[in-house]
């Protein structure tokens, strides 16, 4: 019997290997033209070529830069507004129906207007991503604030805290778990939409790279783009966000609650 640790590392490789093997063999069994399914070697060569001429890195960095910008702008707007809505019933009543409706207009649908207003390229895409990230985290900020126990607020109030002190010593840290969850899931939504937005409105970026390649039947670039999209996201999600979450949420003994 295999020890469970080795098994856990080894077993998941089997399906990956099987798919890779199938991909290798498929063209020699079925008459699939290379423009429909290029061989793994072709994709690998394309990877090496675009890596050495710097074009791949250029697209990856363009995508990540937009995601980062959209993330900062979206959350800089969403978190303060979310806290205000969570704290104040009147603000909540006034804003929530409108925001619910605006949220239901998927960010992707803003692309044409964004292109009109900001021109094709960076501005339009960042607008769309910021829009999506804003709505994705707004709700978490509201829930986070509403979930801070009233007793905490009363406790610091009776210790003589002002409302600003209450905000920064109780409300924000108390809502932190939900905020972090929101940050993470908002990036997921942003990333998802980013590739779509780049398909349509990009002049650089991974999404642009793949759809542009379709016109030239450069399917190896399309597949390379897909693999990089998958890997980049797993790295981003696991290496960056899960680590942040583990460092804070779990250290404080708080539980994820999504």
């Amino acid at each position: 019997m295999m020890t469970s640790k080795a098994a856990r590392l080894f077993l998941p490789m089997i399906p990956f290997a099987a798919i890779l093997a199938l991909w290798f063999i498929a063209p020699s069994i079925f008459p699939i033209p290379a423009y429909k399914l290029p061989t793994p070697q072709l994709v690998w060569e394309q990877f090496a070529a675009t890596l050495s001429d710097g074009s791949l890195l250029k697209h990856v960095l363009a995508s990540l830069e937009r995601l980062a910008l959209g993330f900062v702008i979206g959350n800089a707007l969403a978190i303060p507004l979310g806290i205000a809505i969570g704290l104040n019933k009147h603000v909540s009543d006034l804003c929530m129906p409108l925001l619910t409706f605006l949220q239901s207009i998927a960010g992707i649908a803003w692309i044409p207007l964004a292109v009109l207003w900001f021109g094709i390229g960076n501005g339009a895409i960042v607008f769309v991503i910021a829009n999506i990230i804003f709505f994705a985290n707004l709700h978490n900020a509201v829930i986070g604030v509403e979930a801070v126990p009233e007793s905490y607020r009363r406790a610091v109030r009776s210790l003589g805290a002002s409302s600003t002190q209450t905000l920064f010593n109780v409300i924000v840290p108390g809502a932190m778990v939900q905020l972090l969850i929101g940050l993470r899931s908002s990036v997921a939504f942003g990333w998802r939409a980013l590739i779509g937005a780049e398909l349509i409105a990009g002049t650089t970026g991974l999404g642009y790279m793949t759809l542009d390649a379709v016109q030239w039947y450069q399917t190896e670039t399309v597949i390379l783009g897909m693999i990089i999209v998958g890997i980049l996201w797993l790295v981003l999600d696991h290496a960056v966000f899960k680590t942040i979450e583990n460092r804070t949420v779990i250290r404080w003994g708080l539980v994820r609650s999504d």
Binding site: I195, G196, L199, T219, V229
Partner: peptide, 21 residues
């Protein structure tokens, strides 16, 4: 358990990335 990483990987390739292919 065996298939979870594979599924995670394909799940991570967002739908828009599939559209061109």
């Amino acid at each position: 358990r065996m298939f979870t990483p594979l599924v995670s990987f394909f799940y991570a390739i967002v739908e828009s990335a599939w559209l061109p292919i």
